[in-house]
């Protein structure tokens, strides 16, 4: 995943998550909030045409702070997984 979990760096242009199985783009989502839950992502997560296991989310420039990536993946066999991880912008 990009940026990596618990990493610190400049504001990322995109969030990129690669799953172990191909996912259904229509029902797989990524959103970014700050630690308080305020949503910072406005775009919709998109699939990568050449890699059905990867979803990306374009981000606006994020001000310094801590952020949480909330992801939902629905595999092509219809199974749903969800989780979250944090990263920090300097």
């Amino acid at each position: 995943m990009v940026p990596a979990a618990d990493s610190t760096g400049a504001s990322p242009a995109v969030i990129s998550i690669t799953y172990s199985e191909a996912v259904e783009p229509k029902f797989s989502t990524i959103r970014v909030t700050d630690a308080g839950g305020k949503k910072f992502s406005t775009a919709t997560a998109m699939p990568v045409a050449s890699d059905p296991k990867t979803m990306t989310l374009a981000l606006p420039t994020l001000p310094p702070g801590s952020y949480v990536v909330h992801w939902v993946s629905v595999a092509t066999d219809s199974h749903r997984l969800e989780g979250q991880y944090a990263f920090t912008v300097k």
């Binding site: 191909a22 259904e24 229509k26 629905v74 092509t76």
Partner: peptide, 24 residues
């Protein structure tokens, strides 16, 4: 399972996209 909601109203609204647009 795909929408994360087992309620009848929620499922009824998404059943066609699931059947027509997803692999499973």
């Amino acid at each position: 399972t795909m929408i994360g909601d087992a309620g009848v109203a929620a499922v009824r609204g998404q059943i066609m996209p699931v059947v027509l647009e997803t692999h499973a």
